[in-house]
Simulated scan of single mutants.
Amino acid sequence: MIELVKQSKSQKVNTAETLYNVFSEEVNSGLERNPKCLPSKYFYDQKGDALFVKIMNLPEYYLTRSELEIFQHKTNQLINALELHPERYFELVELGAGDGLKTKELLKVLEHQNYKFDYLPIDISSNALNLLEDNLKQELPKVSVKTKQGDYFKVLDALKESKHPKIILFLGSNIGNMSDSAATKFMTKLSANLNPEDKLLLGVDLIKSKSVVLPAYNDSQGVTAAFNLNLLARINAELGADFNLNQFKHKPEYDENEGIAKSFIESCVNQIVTIKALGKSFKFLKGEKIHTEISRKYNDTLITEIIANANFSLDTKILDSKAYFADYILTRNA
């Protein structure tokens, strides 16, 4: 028993060290580029998780409400589209589970109707997974929850050995945080990590007017700005940087013809920032921007394009009442 505890502690230390090293490398490579960029996945530390929960409840942030409406009011339609049967066991795997707000609506119905399944949420944030697991123990104690921290594909590769049917949830338009080429590669790799007849529920935000989209990324309370700038605070805390957050600002953009919302952190002055963990300093000019996130909006044509090289067939899509958001159902081909 003592040896098992030691091994468990060692594994956790090794995982933490690996994540720290990857974080350092990606910050370094991003800030060395021209134009500068930082990966949006690093928004999600403990403070970032809490800020994003606030964002989801903002009046301007329609995305969560739109997909939540689908999960609340079209749950049985989702279950039928996913071809689930109460007597057949399956694994419900969620990529980037977060707080599980929408998924819980589906879990409630599956539990009530006595479906046989395990829920396997995957997230890079251990804090988010711990909070989700604790919450589900309180709200849905009968649901079997097996959390998985780490990279989506590494976890899926390990899960692929199981021949049980899998339902993959990739919600919240998280696919929209990738460029079109990256999304195409992601979908191709995702299909390769699944078995024939496995299903994917892909939630995406649809292309719409600037008057609706831009406020969702630039709310009047400044929560989104705090969320974006928290990335610099995280680099300060974890890598020993000296970013002065008062000398940077949140800068969102959206072109409805292109259908892509973009978030930047803009330097307000000429300045130099030192990151101790990297042993480097980085020069910022006034007005220079760090690209932190994209949020691609989709339509049927774009969805067809990003799955063109993937081994998926597109079954159907389910819309919210305003047609702001779509949940596409795809099947992994044989």
Rank of each mutant, 00 (worst) to 15 (best):
residue 68 L to V: 10
residue 103 T to L: 03
residue 243 F to C: 10
residue 291 H to R: 01
residue 172 G to L: 01
residue 179 S to C: 02
residue 195 N to G: 08
residue 103 T to K: 01
residue 319 L to R: 14
residue 25 E to R: 12
residue 137 K to T: 06
residue 280 K to R: 11
residue 307 I to E: 04
residue 209 S to L: 12
residue 234 R to S: 06
residue 148 K to T: 04
residue 21 N to E: 06
residue 182 A to K: 10
residue 198 D to F: 09
residue 118 D to V: 07
residue 112 H to C: 09
residue 39 P to R: 02
residue 110 L to A: 07
residue 11 Q to V: 05
residue 145 V to R: 06
residue 221 Q to R: 13
residue 282 F to V: 05
residue 217 Y to E: 06
residue 170 F to A: 01
residue 214 L to M: 05
residue 157 D to W: 00
residue 309 N to M: 08
residue 276 K to E: 14
residue 141 P to V: 05
residue 318 I to S: 10
residue 309 N to H: 14
residue 40 S to H: 05
residue 100 G to Q: 03
residue 172 G to A: 02
residue 116 K to H: 14
residue 314 L to Q: 12
residue 298 Y to A: 03
residue 251 K to T: 09
residue 55 I to R: 03
residue 252 P to A: 07
residue 315 D to P: 00
residue 328 Y to E: 06
residue 31 L to H: 09
residue 196 P to M: 03
residue 12 K to N: 08
residue 239 L to Y: 07
residue 233 A to N: 13
residue 317 K to M: 11
residue 98 G to R: 00
residue 259 G to K: 01
residue 180 D to I: 15
residue 223 V to S: 00
residue 303 I to F: 01
residue 31 L to G: 04
residue 315 D to H: 14
residue 147 T to F: 10
residue 324 Y to Q: 12
residue 107 L to R: 00
residue 199 K to P: 09
residue 304 T to C: 11
residue 128 A to S: 15
residue 37 C to H: 15
residue 283 K to D: 14
residue 111 E to R: 11
residue 140 L to P: 03
residue 294 I to S: 09
residue 285 L to W: 08
